[in-house]
C-alpha cells in the first residue's frame, strides 16, 4: 500500500503534469496562472450612466470635503455594487457591498466623490499587521468601445488595453498632516529607540545621514513613491495593463481629500480635465468614457487583489460647459 502511494506520488504527478501542461497551454491564451477568465457579462458595461455635472464653482481656499460637498448637491449619484475579487490570486475582499459615486466639473477640473461604509478607520500602515483603507477609480486610456467583443477587462485592463488608475490612500492623507510629510515610526511606536533619525525636522537632524539616504533606505533610494516623504497628495496616479502590472506614473496629477464620519468614508478625487501626460485619461466636456472602482478595507487586511471590486465598467458622461 505504502509503496503504491509512493509510486503514485512519483509517477502519478508526472502524468498529471502532462495533463496539466496541456490544459494550461490551452488556457494560456487569455489567462495567466492563478487567473480565471472573465465572462461576457463582465465585458458588458453597466446601464446606469454617471453624469459629470457641470457646476460653476468658487474655488474654495482649502480644498477639503467640507468646502466641496456643497458643489455636489445637484449631481446625481450612482450606486456601484461591489464584490469580492475572485479572479486573480490572491483572492479576497467582500466586506464592502457598495459605494456611492457622484461627479462634477467646472470646466477646468473634474471631481469625483465616493462614499462607502466602513466601521473601522484604518489610516496607517506602519505595523506589519496593519493595512490602510483605500479606494481607487479606473479609466480606460483613450477613446474605447466597450462591448463584449472588445474584451476590455473591467478588472485591471489588459495587454494593449491600458488603464489609468487613481488610488487614494488613507495613510497618505494622514502623512500630509505631519511635519516632514510622512508619518514616522514614532507615530506607531512612540518610545521606540533608533540610532539614526531620518526626519529632517527632528531635533537630531543629521545632514550626512540624510544625504547618504541611498545606503540607508532602499525604498526611498529606488524612488518608490510609497516610501517618499512630502508627496503632497493623497492620491497616486498609476497605469496598468492587466493583473500584476500596476505602475506608478512618473508624473503625478491627481489630488484628493477625505472625511471619515459615523462609519462612513467620503473621499473626493480631483484633477484637471485635461493633462499633458499621455498616460492619463482625459475628460472632454460633452464627451463620454467609462470608469470602474474598487475599495479596500484595511480592517479586513485588504490590499492588492484582496479588495471589493465592481466587475463592470460604468459609463461616464461629461456635461458640456455653459458656453459650449
Amino acid at each position: 500500500m505504502k509503496r503504491r502511494l509512493m509510486l503514485l506520488k512519483r509517477y502519478g504527478f508526472a502524468l498529471l503534469s502532462c495533463a496539466f501542461l496541456s490544459t494550461s497551454a490551452f488556457a494560456a491564451e487569455d489567462t495567466a496562472p492563478g487567473v480565471k477568465g472573465a465572462s461576457d457579462e463582465e465585458y458588458t458595461p453597466a446601464k446606469e450612466v454617471l453624469t459629470v455635472k457641470y457646476v460653476q464653482m468658487e474655488k474654495p481656499y482649502h480644498l477639503d470635503v467640507e468646502s466641496l460637498t456643497g458643489s455636489f448637491k445637484d449631481a446625481k449619484e450612482v450606486v456601484i455594487p461591489l464584490q469580492k475579487q475572485d479572479k486573480a490570486f490572491p483572492n479576497g475582499g467582500g466586506s464592502v457591498s457598495n459605494a456611492e459615486v457622484k461627479a462634477i466639473h467646472d470646466g477646468l477640473s473634474i471631481y469625483f466623490q465616493v462614499k462607502w461604509k466602513d466601521p473601522t478607520r484604518n489610516a496607517r500602515a506602519i505595523a506589519v499587521q496593519e493595512f490602510r483603507d483605500a479606494v481607487a477609480l479606473m479609466f480606460p486610456l483613450g477613446t474605447v468601445l466597450m462591448d463584449p467583443a472588445e474584451h476590455f477587462s473591467p478588472r485591471m485592463g489588459d495587454r494593449e488595453k491600458p488603464v489609468n488608475l487613481w488610488h487614494w490612500k488613507s495613510d497618505w492623507e494622514a502623512d500630509m498632516l505631519v511635519k516632514g510629510e510622512l508619518e514616522d515610526v514614532e507615530a506607531q511606536y512612540p518610545n521606540m529607540h533608533d540610532d539614526f533619525n531620518l526626519n529632517p525636522y527632528s531635533a537630531y537632524y543629521h545632514r550626512d545621514l540624510i544625504t547618504s539616504i541611498a545606503v540607508l533606505s532602499g525604498g526611498r533610494a529606488a524612488r518608490n513613491l510609497l516610501s517618499q516623504p512630502g508627496r503632497g497628495r493623497s492620491v497616486e496616479d498609476l497605469n496598468a495593463e492587466g493583473f500584476g502590472t500596476l505602475t506608478t506614473q512618473d508624473h503625478q496629477d491627481v489630488f484628493g481629500c477625505s472625511r471619515y464620519e459615523d462609519g462612513e468614508w467620503t473621499v473626493i478625487f480631483y484633477r484637471s480635465l485635461i493633462t499633458e501626460d499621455p498616460h492619463d485619461a482625459q475628460f472632454v466636456p460633452g464627451g463620454n468614457t467609462f470608469f470602474n472602482m474598487a475599495v479596500w478595507n484595511g480592517g479586513e487586511k485588504d490590499r492588492n487583489g484582496q479588495k471589493n471590486i465592481s466587475i463592470q465598467w460604468h459609463p461616464l458622461s461629461i456635461e458640456r460647459v455653459a458656453w459650449q
Binding site: A127, D184, S217, G218, G219, L226
Partner: peptide, 11 residues
Amino acid sequence: PMYRGLTRVSE
C-alpha cells in the same frame, strides 16, 4: 521577508 513601516515596503 520583513515589512519596513518607514518606507511602507518589505525588505
